[in-house]
Amino acid sequence: MEKDRKFRALAIAAICVAIVGVSVAYAALTASLTISGTATVSTADAWKIQWTAVGEPTKSAAVSFGDADAGKPKIGSGNQNITWTATFGAPKTNLTFTATFTNSGTIPAKLEPGTYVNATGDASSNFEYAVKIGADDIASKSGNILQPGKSVTVTVTVDFDKTGTLTDEQLEELNTKTATFTLNLPWTQATDTEVESGTKF
């Protein structure tokens, strides 16, 4: 038994050294580690920021959401993002919809800056996005605090070739003008100081 205890004590010491070493390494490497967004913590705790509603979209006649409107904006898995897939049949076309996010937990949340809308697919580089709260762009609300129980509604607008700069040849080459979009707002916990002095949604 003594031998086993000594072995375990050595194992504990080795693990502690490894943890310290890994912590130092991670702290030094943070800039180059693959950090993909903020965690959605699903344990029994008080952090819960989520999308709770998506309004019916309005769109130009030449915009389509696919068969049976399968690509309409909808709340994604875990209620952490909104996704939609649309095909834009002509330049200077757009779609608009509203979406509501809520702080359903007990911890005040702060909106972090970032790229809120991402698009993939053919023609994704020809889109312009606007995410607004009222008349203000959401980027100007970065740092604002969302208190527990509060909700905010945003208006999302996607324009294809807004200024009509694409030539007929370029439009023809873009055989399908389809893209899949994801709207994701990054949040972190607001400290007590930030809650006291920060702007609330």
Partner: peptide
Amino acid sequence: FIYCMGYELITYLSGLILGFVRSPYS
């Protein structure tokens, strides 16, 4: 202690393959 800390160490090293997410907590 060995099991718990060993588990945490292994999962954090696995992050080099699986990637990481940022904690929402201050």
